[in-house]
Design a protein around this nucleic acid. Structure first.
Ligand SMILES: [Zn+2]
Ligand SMILES: [Zn+2]
Ligand SMILES: [Zn+2]
Ligand SMILES: [Zn+2]
Length: 576
DNA sequence: CTGGGGAAGGGGCCC
DNA sequence: AGGGCCCCTTCCCCA
């Protein structure tokens, strides 16, 4: 998803679809990202000017008679309270565009003034005497970093604050229960993806919230329901956030895929916790939850990050520091995770943020000395260089095949074993590659197959076991000669345009590939495997015949006859 | 469709 | 802490 989104971002006016190849191709036509570090400051400054002059102000805050014209977008960016307020009102007639007034008598005018000043200048200026009011205001409005700073100055621990509200805040307002479910579902879906499972856990859900137990814990552990959460909120207390708030950035990024697949990458990473966390944050600062933190491990309050993200792009580490202060010196592993100020995505791993940032800027600092192609990452360049050097570091221990990439070898090895580890739960068709399975499941071919799936005798069913296609003997499987990258070195497709090998179109594809692959082998090695090669081709013929079977049900890979019965159960969990 | 290759990105580990 | 190096997943595209 990222790719698409980024393409969209970088070339707002162009058709994203074709971008891939075009932009990627070697030429120097690659996208160029020019960072403007001062932009954010200038932007803020101009916004502040507008505020002073009342220009474009669409929201007026009042406190005890004092009036403060502001901008909704800014307030929403800086304040959790307003974020929720407007998120909730979105779509509702009033909230959309009307000039509105928000009465905030619960925040002292001076404090409100200071907070606004902060919002528009990133600097908090207040007499120490007013500190407490500001703290209060910051808490009410959900301006976490200011609250943290104030507490820090006041020498006040977050615990105290936390306890004050914890009873009610621990869980979201009841009104939200539905939404909670909704989120939970999303999370669960995601958690099914093995890759993301970890992420989900790390994501740092509100502490009352478990991805695996959607609506769990809270009721019992927190008898006093939610409504309390907002007890302290200003008069204009916003209603529960609407679903839209779940994907504010989706729209913003204009990435259709993000919406289609809310579970992917940053989207969910960014959005889900965002909302969830905000919920829990609104009243009680995160740092209070020490116990749970240990569980979240290194990811601690990812949600916090999210929450600040929009207004305070900063490294998680920074935030972690702030939070730790607020938390009264809680030991927080502020280490690895960092948040991208641009896309709000959390980047794990120390030193990985710059790398990620290059995906936004388009910067390609690494250039191939041989052909001039540039890369955003040095490790990509390194791999690219193998094309020039002919190096193929990954060698199959069973045959002479050698590969550029490790995953190619891996893939190749699965060919030796005939393993097709990725099986469609519906039709049980097995794939050697996960993405192919995914593609299969998205399409409808799968369902068609289901209806006419054969029913065979005894279930040889090896449940759980990985699919193994017709276990071809090691030497026999011709496919082993066309692993993902044997060809890369030579003629493959690189921009380098090595000598491509051309074969008569009449020849079966696999055979061609085999030949190609063979051609990649060192001559002497080739000499030592002649029969092997031939035998492979022979076998191929046989396999092809088998594959003719309509519906592919007789494909060797599927011959485990396990079909039937369990399919029914599985299709329940099959939802998208 | 399906299989396969190229490429982009993210995360882990280690120095 | 930053970065090299490597592994892995996902997408896109092509045949
Ligand atoms: Zn980013
Ligand atoms: Zn090169
Ligand atoms: Zn091999
Ligand atoms: Zn299927």
């Amino acid at each position: 998803m990222d790719t698409t989104r980024q393409r969209l971002l970088r070339l707002p006016g162009t058709v994203p679809i074709k971008m891939g190849k075009v932009a990627m191709s070697p030429g120097e036509d690659g996208l160029i990202g020019i960072p403007f570090p001062e932009h954010s400051n200038e932007l803020l400054s101009h916004l502040n000017d507008q505020r002073r002059t009342g220009l474009l102000c669409d929201l007026t805050l009042t406190s005890h008679g004092a009036r403060y014209p502001t901008h909704r977008s800014v307030m929403a960016a800086v304040s959790l309270y307003f974020r929720r307020l407007f998120g909730a009102e979105e779509g509702g007639g009033e909230g959309g565009g009307g000039f509105s007034v928000c009465q905030l008598d619960c925040v002292a005018p001076d404090a409100l003034d200071a907070l606004l000043e902060f919002a528009y200048t990133a600097t908090l200026t207040i007499p120490s005497s007013g500190m407490r009011d500001v703290l209060r205001g910051a808490q009410l409005l959900g301006i976490q970093c200011v609250a943290d700073a104030c507490r820090d100055i006041l020498g006040e621990t977050a615990e105290a604050e936390g306890q004050e509200v914890s009873a009610g805040e621990q869980r979201p307002p009841q009104a939200t229960s539905e939404r909670t479910v909704e989120i939970a579902n999303v999370v669960e879906k995601i958690s099914r993806r093995k890759t993301d499972r970890k992420k989900v856990k790390k994501v740092g859900l509100p502490h009352n919230f478990s991805p695996l137990n959607p609506l769990p814990a809270s009721p019992a552990s927190h008898p006093s329901p939610a409504s309390d959460s907002f007890r302290s909120l200003p008069p204009t207390q916003p209603p529960s956030p609407e679903p839209e708030e779940l994907h504010p950035k989706l729209g913003q990024n204009g990435d259709p895929r993000a919406i289609r697949e809310p579970g992917r990458g940053a989207t969910l990473n960014g959005e889900f916790p965002h909302w969830a966390q905000e919920r829990s944050l609104i009243a009680h600062p995160p740092p209070t939850q020490n116990d749970k933190l240990s569980e979240d491990d290194d990811m601690e309050g990812l949600g916090d990050d999210m929450m600040r993200s929009s207004s305070f792009p900063s490294s998680v580490a920074d935030r972690g520091a702030a939070t730790s202060v607020a938390g009264g010196g809680r030991k927080r592993k502020s280490q690895t995770p960092q948040q991208c100020p641009v896309c709000q995505k959390i980047i794990h791993g120390a030193g990985k943020l710059p790398r990620h940032m290059r995906t936004h800027t388009g910067e390609k600092p690494f250039q191939c000395s041989a052909c001039g192609v540039r890369f955003t990452r040095n490790d990509k360049l390194k791999i690219h260089m193998r094309k020039h050097t002919g190096e193929r570091p990954y060698t199959c221990s069973h045959c002479p095949a050698r590969f550029l990439h490790s995953y190619d070898l891996k893939n190749h090895l699965s060919l030796h074993s005939g393993a097709r580890p990725f099986e469609c739960p519906l039709c049980h068709k097995a794939f050697a590659r996960e993405d192919h399975l995914q593609r299969h499941r998205k399409g409808h071919s799968c369902l068609e197959l289901r209806t006419r799936r054969p029913r065979r005798g005894p279930e040889l069913g090896e449940d759980g076991g990985e699919k193994e296609g017709s276990p071809l003997s090691l030497q026999a499987h011709p496919s082993m000669f066309h692993p993902r990258s044997v060809l890369e070195g030579g003629g493959g497709s690189g921009s380098i345009g090595g000598p491509s090998l051309i074969f008569p179109s009449g020849i079966d594809r696999e055979r061609s590939l085999a030949l190609q692959a063979l051609a990649q082998l060192a001559p002497q090695r080739l000499a030592s495997y002649p029969e092997l090669f031939l035998r492979g081709l022979e076998m191929q013929g046989g396999r092809d015949l088998e594959r003719e079977d309509p519906g592919g049900t007789r494909s060797p890979a599927l011959q485990h006859d396990r079909w039937a019965d369990e399919v029914e159960d599985e299709e329940i969990e099959e939802g998208e």
